[in-house]
Design a protein around this nucleic acid. Sequence first.
DNA 1: GTCTATAGGGCGATAGAC
DNA 2: GTCTATCGCCCTATAGAC
Lengths: 185, 185
Amino acid sequence: MGRWEPDARGRMIAAAMELYAERGFEQTTAGDIAERAGVTERTFFRHFADKREVLFDGSDVMAKAVYDAVVSAPDGASPLDAALAGAAATSAFLEDRRDHAVRRARIVAATPSLQERELLKMAALTETVTEALRSRGVEEPAAGLAAHGAIAVFQVAFRRWAAEAEPPGFADCVADAADSFRALC
Amino acid sequence: MGRWEPDARGRMIAAAMELYAERGFEQTTAGDIAERAGVTERTFFRHFADKREVLFDGSDVMAKAVYDAVVSAPDGASPLDAALAGAAATSAFLEDRRDHAVRRARIVAATPSLQERELLKMAALTETVTEALRSRGVEEPAAGLAAHGAIAVFQVAFRRWAAEAEPPGFADCVADAADSFRALC
DNA sequence: GTCTATAGGGCGATAGAC
DNA sequence: GTCTATCGCCCTATAGAC
């Protein structure tokens, strides 16, 4: 056992989730989070660029997995199918954490400033999928449009998965949303 | 002529565009903008909720036009076609202001925090289109997915229209992007 | 760790329009 | 007189600099 309690980062994330849920994002100061986590305010800002970022830990790990899933989709897959393979890959990060995902989504939905950050991450993910498609030889504008479509499918799937009392698995929600998307055209 | 110069709001918007372009968003304080516009910092914040919002004046007027266009699309139009009518309606706000739109887009693209706000407006616009589709009797998830598709088409169309040296009209860019989108499925 | 500039909210005073 | 825009000063928290 070292000089500090272990997992300061995890404690800060947990403390932030609690406080944002209890009293709201704006009513929570960085100092409040640090205090509950047993660190100084300065330590909080060394781990997280800003107060929002604490709710987006690990989003680049998921982005990497999405990229790999798109790149390694079957050779014959259409641009849309390859992009949708990326959407499906997110289920590994959500399937067994529904409670946490729903609580987090509730906090984000209640706070415009957190929605903005979430949308920026989604836009970055769209860019990631676009890049992965281009590495498969897909040209613009098809690459960008297929990526946007896959992200829309993901969002619609997540909303249903979070809202329903007894939802099917997340992967099934993605598959259903993908079918609805294909039916559009 | 009264005590104050008229159109303080317009002067603040112009001053902000200039300063954000000259020295960047972060390097510009609200006081700088206010000073150049001949008002106090406090007046700036009375007109705009925050430093970002000054670049999004009139976005709700456009949202209203988009809503109306979707609602009044032909009776037989598919959900996607109705949503795309909304995307086409934005051309009235852009067609004759390419220079301004491009300068503004350049500033936004250079600043993550402005991108976040832009994405929030786009998400709100997606919600607007979704609502308009629902008022036409379109059910979820088709409404949300068609709305996302139309917004993607808009964004792809805008990017091309802004990037090309001698682009066709914005309406043509939307039509071309819509064709590419339909080809996805 | 300390120090500081800036964002952005609260509030009362003031000056004009009506 | 009322209503509204602007001002000026006070405040705290964020987040960057040192």
